[in-house]
Simulated scan of single mutants.
Amino acid sequence: MSSHHIVRDDQEPAVLIDKVDESLFSILFSLLEWSPIVIASEQTYEKLLSLDVKIDVIFYQNDKDTIHQNMERQNEFFELVHYHENLLETVLQWLAKQKHFALNFITDTLDGVSQKLLKEQVYINTLVVFADGFKYILNRKSPYEKWIPKGVELVVDSAIQDAENTALLEERRYKVINDGVIKVYHNDQLVIGEKMNVPYDRK
């Protein structure tokens, strides 16, 4: 199928959903409010259908015919894209071909292989990953600056030069000392995660 039917003019970040459960519903539906391109994996498309989420693209490895049959419920255009091994890598390449350069990714864990891939790829400018209870951001320009409340835990994927307004908890894990701006100095290539949905430390 031709993919030009699903390209959006407003370039809201596409949403790739490789995990969906109740703990992630609030994140998912807040992202969907902006009518992005919705990309499902073979593992999540049926759950998304049950939630009445309109799916634009499904990346699959097997059971193409079964997916087609199940997707008849949607009764709207969608595209099927096959991938061999790495879902995230294939999606990033597909988005680049669509000239779409922003992605929100919902998954269960962000492993070292995926973090390395995010840093090395050059297709996507804006990348946010929701995984492990953290919101991860790819930051290419040092320092990374953001206002964050006191007590929020941060995790970085590699050694950094300095981190203002933070205390080191253990290797690559930090805690925000005071309400305010943090600054993380790095070598212009960093994946940084901010713990979500935790009670802030007001002591």
Rank of each mutant, 00 (worst) to 15 (best):
D9F: 12
V156F: 02
Q11S: 12
D21Y: 07
S2R: 12
Q98N: 12
W94H: 09
D179A: 04
D9C: 09
R173C: 08
Y83Q: 04
K54E: 09
L169I: 12
V198Y: 07
K47N: 12
Q93K: 15
H82P: 07
V113D: 15
P143W: 03
K99E: 15
E145A: 12
S114F: 04
L154A: 02
I106N: 07
D21V: 08
E12K: 10
V53R: 03
K135H: 02
I67C: 07
E153G: 00
D111C: 09
A167I: 09
N104R: 10
D132N: 13
Y144K: 07
I106V: 13
A163N: 04
L138I: 01
R73H: 15
H4N: 15
D63S: 13
H68T: 11
P13K: 08
L169G: 01
R173M: 07
V38G: 04
I106D: 05
L190M: 03
A14P: 01
A40K: 00
E171M: 08
L95N: 03
V129D: 03
V91H: 06
K146L: 05
I148N: 01
L24H: 09
Y136I: 07
D157P: 04
L92Y: 05
A131K: 06
L110F: 06
G112C: 07
N86P: 08
F78A: 08
L127M: 15
D132W: 00
N86A: 14
V7K: 12
L168K: 15
D157L: 07
A131S: 04
L154P: 02
Y174D: 02
L48S: 06
K116H: 12
Q98M: 14
K195M: 06
P36K: 03
Y185L: 13
K195Y: 01
D162N: 15
F25G: 10
Y200I: 13
D108S: 11
E33T: 10
R173T: 08
L31R: 12
I177H: 06
I182C: 02
T166H: 04
G151Y: 05
E120D: 12
I67A: 08
I124G: 00
E170H: 14
D21T: 11
L103N: 00
E153P: 00
Q98P: 07
Q43A: 14
L32M: 06
Q93M: 09
K54H: 05
V122I: 13
V129S: 01
F134P: 03
V57Q: 06
